[in-house]
Write a protein that binds this DNA or RNA. Structure first.
Lengths: 233, 233, 233, 233
DNA sequence: GATGAATGAGGATTCATTCAT
DNA sequence: CATGAATGAATCCTCATTCAT
């Protein structure tokens, strides 16, 4: 504050652009780094490229991040969804049906995470978990655990309310989770996930998955006896 | 001529060890490379490490694979499932219900691919597709396309036979595919996929997924009207 | 010898080809090595290539030459002209004019050395003298010195006989030597020596050089009719 | 704007040293590389050695030259005589005798090329022409062709003016060229070219060669008094 | 703070040499 | 003797990191 007073207006104006940039430097670097790490992986990404994409020099990057590894960790931390507190509250206050809740959940997840750049973090962690055990553990704790738990609570609530069938919830959660993960991965590594013969519309994809899942978890159905046989190996 | 007679069994045995080794070298190297590439990614894996794990020296690796990149491509090619011809035949001759068929499909996939080391290829392609567009295209063509197509044919048959509901099959296939992919990824990057609070048994996981999916795709159910509402964004 | 008696005739016939080859192996290797060393230089030549060109395996080469460097030295030694004794005798007995002698000298040199593969040694020594001081010293002593000396003696004789002008013979020798060296070099590195616009015929080249040199060295430059005779091979 | 005023001389001096170094780096590297390539050949020269001789680290070399091969090509290009335009002009304007012209030519060549480091390029091309066909072609086109052509024009003029005898000029040029080439080669690979019994003084060597050549090429080989004058530098 | 020239440890690749067969 | 698979020292080249300006 006092500094502001000392810097004469002219000088202030002069430095305005630079200062605004300065403050946003780390953010620009993180964004560039996220893009490149997701695209090429940690090892195959050169810091110079990150710097170039952020419009600064190599040296500047090291001004903000002491090492490439620190940059990587910052990227993960920065993009880790901190939505769970909010989502848990939403869950706690939710009055609708389980179907509504599950649907809301998948759609929100897509809208808030999947559709954003942050979705790349999933692919990144998948690739680099082995190389960065500590950051992987952090990710699991901050994202995987809460996510899995939230879904589980939703399903539990559904069971308790008699809306959902009796299922082994530890496994059932993945009926919700896996389609969303696939969607995120397909976004960043299409060739490894989906045929290029058909185009994927995320909204329709989610709707389609929901239809099947919700149907499949719902209470009523009765006559599917044939199923049980095959599940035994 | 007489020489032929002279080559006594002992001499044959002489060459045996070395030759057997020679023939198995590429395989040993490919196996070691698969492990390491899957674990650490292409760039972070050192060829010397691959060689060491295969029990040979750095130079030997280059005797069989002209470059690290060629090694990578060989690893992918080697581990790409050539099961589709067989699976398509199985499908063509199949007499059972769709539920049986889908169940068979998931279980077979897991048993033949997911549970083997080849499952690592999925993770590998996810990570490296961007860095190896040509091999990614090859993978898509040899694995992704046929897999997606096979599932689609199974679902189509189910629809035609009146066993499965009317669904957009281009999307429905992912209800089968995504749980299996998640299972394969979880196997190689657990931290990025699943909570460590609960242990995952693949058989139970698949059974659990099947139960929901088959339920969800089956014809009969009726009273799930609430669903449709929510699918709208 | 005794071995020969023990080997029955049949076996002998059987081994005949192989044995003949065996004896010529070193020669074949030396020839292949000369070619390649001259073409690409010592360092850029791979022993495997030498072996392959000689039709044997890499290991066999090391059976005859303990190291690449030894092979190199053998190549040089093998191809070093041992003509000087003979040539000195020819000189001692020579009865003709200096012009005839010089002409004979250049033509012989070309015919016996320049036109053969051994000519490559000059280029080889030029390139590798710095890397192999000992072999270079050997070459200088065995080839350069005697050659220079022989020419000098020829010129001295000419001076003494009043056929050649009074010249500083230490330098005059190079009027004979340099054109021949150029011819040898041009043979192995055309691009570095001569335009490709005009084709060089060695015989004409030498005749042409002789004409100028002899003229230039002659006492009363008039009666040099003898020249033309010698230039014809 | 005001900034311009602010850049005080001190700041300018600030960058001076490093910038001057930066600008001179390629030159220093090229010089070191020329030395070493000429001395040891391309393959036997280690880039680290070049860097060390230029007083920088290995990495710095690659900052200026993308590869060892590019360094080599740059060395050749850098040292290729661009004197021919000037020399051709000199020739066009020349008023003196052919003897004077030839004498000037050899002496200039020596002074401007032979006596400098650039003379090493001849040896380098001789050794590496086979390994670098494209740069050899470039060298032939930029040096060999123009040189040979210039000499030819000089001789043609001499013939036309009745000063030189009727000779096959395609071959006669080498009477001028070969002594100079020998001199250049002797400078860099003495052991391969000249006896160490006698010391060679380039000036005397050229004078000596000129004496013979000019004599040898002259029309009525009697009145060549002019020669002696020119041989003096 | 920002820059980019310089560094040098690290990793891919080559190839002379060895040696079991 | 002959082979060629195996080796690992040597070398080119990359790129994260430093630091003078």
């Amino acid at each position: 504050m006092s500094l502001v007073k000392l810097t004469c207006p002219i000088k202030k104006a002069f430095h305005a652009k630079r200062e605004r940039r300065k403050e946003s430097r780390p953010g620009e670097l993180l964004e560039a780094a996220l893009d490149l790490f997701v695209e090429k992986g940690f090892a195959a990404t050169r810091v110079e490229e990150v710097a170039a994409r952020a419009g600064v020099s190599k040296g500047t990057l090291f001004l903000y991040f002491p090492s490439k590894e620190d940059l990587f960790k910052a990227v993960v931390r920065e993009n880790i969804s901190s939505h769970f507190k909010e989502w848990n509250q939403t869950f706690d206050n939710f009055k609708g049906t389980s179907a509504e809740m599950i649907s809301l959940c998948m759609n929100e997840w897509w809208r808030r995470v999947g559709a954003t750049k942050a979705s790349g973090i999933k692919k990144l962690m998948l690739s680099e978990a082995g190389n960065f055990p500590d950051i992987a553990a952090f990710y699991r704790q901050e994202v995987v655990e809460p996510g899995q738990l939230l879904i589980r609570r939703i399903l539990q609530r559904g069971k308790d309310r008699g809306e959902l069938r009796d299922m082994d919830l530890d496994y059932a959660v993945f009926s919700i989770i896996s389609p969303v993960i696939l969607l995120m991965l397909a976004k960043h590594s299409a060739a490894a996930c989906v045929s290029d013969q058909v185009s994927m519309d995320p909204e329709k994809y989610i709707a389609s998955q929901l239809q099947i899942i919700l149907y499949g978890m719902s209470q009523a159905p009765l006559q599917n006896k044939s199923l049980k046989k095959e599940t035994k190996e």
